[in-house]
Amino acid sequence: SYYEILDVPRSASADDIKKAYRRKALQWHPDKNPDNKEFAEKKFKEVAEAYEVLSDKHKREIYDR
């Protein structure tokens, strides 16, 4: 789930989600993982997609249904 990707509970606040996104984006940024760039790019995209949905109140409500 998007919550698992960002490592936050379903009850996470918008601020918690933003902090988790920043932490995970740094962790999986391809430039930070030169030895495993392809895998890092995949993870980085997953993190971005999760944040896009969970950071938008309307999209998150739909996702949580």
Rank of each mutant, 00 (worst) to 15 (best):
K19E: 15
E52Q: 13
S55M: 07
S11R: 07
I5F: 05
A20M: 03
S13I: 04
F39M: 12
Y3H: 02
A48W: 14
D35G: 13
P34H: 12
S11K: 08
I5E: 04
K19P: 02
D7R: 04
A14N: 12
V47M: 07
K37N: 07
E4H: 09
N36F: 08
K57V: 14
E38N: 08
E61Y: 10
K32V: 13
R23Q: 15
A20W: 00
F39V: 11
R22L: 15
A50T: 01
R10N: 13
A48D: 08
R10C: 13
K24P: 00
K59P: 02
F44P: 01
R65H: 10
N33L: 05
D31H: 07
V53G: 02
K45R: 13
Y21A: 12
K45Y: 08
R10E: 08
R60M: 02
P30W: 04
K32H: 15
N36T: 08
N33R: 04
P9H: 09
F44Q: 06
V53T: 11
F44W: 13
R60K: 11
E61M: 11
R23M: 13
A40G: 04
Y63M: 03
K32M: 15
A12P: 03
K32T: 11
E41N: 10
D64H: 02
E52V: 06
W28Y: 12
Y21L: 04
D15T: 10
A25Y: 15
E46L: 12
Y51D: 01
L54M: 03
A12K: 02
I62K: 11
E46P: 02
K42T: 10
K32D: 07
K42I: 14
P34V: 12
P34K: 12
E52N: 11
E4A: 10
D56M: 03
Y3E: 01
H29Y: 07
N33D: 05
P30C: 05
R65C: 11
I17Q: 00
E41L: 10
S1I: 06
I17G: 00
A50L: 00
V47W: 02
Y21K: 03
S55Q: 07
A25D: 03
R60C: 03
A20N: 03
K57I: 14
Y3R: 00
W28V: 03
K42D: 07
D15V: 08
R22E: 15
D7I: 02
R23K: 15
H29T: 12
K43R: 13
L54A: 00
V53C: 10
A50S: 04
K24Y: 05
K57D: 12
A14I: 14
K42E: 13
H58L: 13
Y2R: 01
E49W: 08
A50M: 01
Y21W: 09
D56N: 09
K37E: 11
P30Y: 04
F44L: 14
D56E: 06
L6S: 00
K37W: 07
P30T: 06
E46R: 05
F44M: 15
A14E: 13
R10W: 10
K37T: 11
K19S: 14
D7Q: 10
S55P: 00
D31C: 10
V8M: 04
Y3W: 03
R60V: 02
I62S: 09
S11T: 15
N36S: 08
S1L: 12
A12D: 01
S55N: 09
K45G: 06
N33T: 05
S1M: 09
N36H: 09
Y21N: 02
D64R: 01
L26R: 10
P30G: 05
I62G: 06
D16N: 04
P9Q: 09
A20H: 03
V53R: 03
L6P: 01
P30I: 05
N36D: 09
A48T: 15
K32G: 11
L26S: 13
K18C: 12
D15G: 10
Y51L: 03
D35E: 13
D64N: 04
R65D: 06
P9F: 04
S13F: 04
A40N: 04
S13A: 06
P34F: 09
K59Y: 06
I17T: 00
S13E: 05
D31W: 05
E52C: 11
S11N: 15
S1T: 14
I62Y: 08
K37L: 14
Y2I: 03
K45M: 11
K32E: 11
A14C: 10
D56V: 05
A14L: 15
I5D: 04
D56W: 01
P34D: 07
A40F: 09
R23N: 15
D64P: 02
L54C: 01
R23P: 02
V8R: 01
F39E: 13
W28C: 04
E41F: 08
E61K: 08
R65I: 12
W28N: 03
K59N: 06
W28L: 05
K18D: 15
A50H: 00
R10F: 11
K42M: 10
S11G: 12
V53S: 03
S11I: 07
K43W: 06
S11E: 13
R22H: 15
L26A: 15
A25V: 14
D15E: 15
V8A: 03
P34T: 09
S1W: 11
V47R: 01
K43P: 01
I5G: 01
I17L: 08
D64V: 01
W28A: 02
E49H: 10
N36W: 08
R10T: 12
E4T: 09
E52A: 12
A14R: 08
Y63K: 03
E41Y: 08
F44G: 05
D16K: 06
F44T: 06
K19D: 15
R60A: 02
K37D: 05
L26V: 08
Y63V: 03
K57L: 11
